[in-house]
Write a protein that binds this DNA or RNA. Sequence first.
DNA 1: CCATAAGCGGACATGTTGTCCACTTATTCC
DNA 2: GGAATAAGTGGACAACATGTCCGCTTATGG
Lengths: 198, 198
Amino acid sequence: MESRRDLLAEPAAPPRERADAARNRAKVLAAAAGLFAARDPREVTMDDVAKAAGVGRGTLYRRYPDTASIARALLDEHERKLQERLLRGEPPLGPGAPPAERLAAFYAAMVELLETHAPLVLGAESGRLRYSTGAYGFWSAHVRALLVEAGVAEPDALVDVLLAPLASESYLHQRDRGRTPGQITAALSRLAHGVLTG
Amino acid sequence: MESRRDLLAEPAAPPRERADAARNRAKVLAAAAGLFAARDPREVTMDDVAKAAGVGRGTLYRRYPDTASIARALLDEHERKLQERLLRGEPPLGPGAPPAERLAAFYAAMVELLETHAPLVLGAESGRLRYSTGAYGFWSAHVRALLVEAGVAEPDALVDVLLAPLASESYLHQRDRGRTPGQITAALSRLAHGVLTG
DNA sequence: CCATAAGCGGACATGTTGTCCACTTATTCC
DNA sequence: GGAATAAGTGGACAACATGTCCGCTTATGG
């Protein structure tokens, strides 16, 4: 049965994280960052992280179901900064510039992000996981808004098409083949202008 | 030391596959096709295939290092047909139509392929593997030729960018979100025309 | 029909994954 | 301050997948 407390409680009283839990979370993230940077991120195992962080297996699994989620947690911090710039930064990244310019600027910023955090990106994206993340939702909402602003009729399918080249597999494949970040950015810029100023 | 036989031998005498080996290969492919269709292809294990095909583990590993390679082998058959049509088929898929048209037609054909063989595609592409395949090389050569024909200055980076939306992860994500093949094809068509007739 | 080598298959050692639960520690309330 | 209580911890464990290895079987060519 429902207690009075349940009915009167605030929408969702957040039970606050315990001090030792917070300490362990920090230890885990720090240790994982080190491991991802040191070797092939896809080879890093949950056991490795637990050992490196000096915590037990169970503790690790309590918060993260797999290594990809850990990498994602690390990556999210960096992505939030870019999100902030998209919302309130200077044009052409932030509001004010024409859609094609903003899309191109977004591409450039994403390339920079991918480049800077390549190991994390590699560790984080086991293909499908990319789409279930909050960040992907943000990027697609952003691009969708730009398409709408540019007067594109059915923007939805186009959004995912335009985001596809930013998938880690695609990007890192290109880098492996010797392409420079600059070349990739140029190609993406052409894409942005081609689609939004046809 | 080199024997006379080595020096006189034909370029690479193919030792011909033994009859029982061929039979087993067929059994394996048939069984794998069934499994991939029946359940989540990413859950299919080498052991499953071996059991279903009625062969031993060792026999399976002799030819295929993992389940992805098996799916790829099955997929290759179908991809070859499309490759043939690209090279010698009717326009706009085959030679003769303007580059933008041909690119759009290629997109449409790929969507159809992805749609028809979704389970295989899912089983085959563990992200990076996609790029190491012969088929990917073919698609990129094709698209590259179209870009060159359209007079694009630095085609290389653009090629991979244009192929990215055809990655299984991207495509299947869109399908999961309720988008129809038709909508996706339309978006890709817009992309083709936007980039090649700017 | 025999010799030979290619092919076969299943046992094995290894490593990873998640789960489970008895124990420890932080927090809350009196 | 000192229970009472809930949250958090850690390592043992069972299940499972992987890839290899090697003695046996079978096709093939002389």
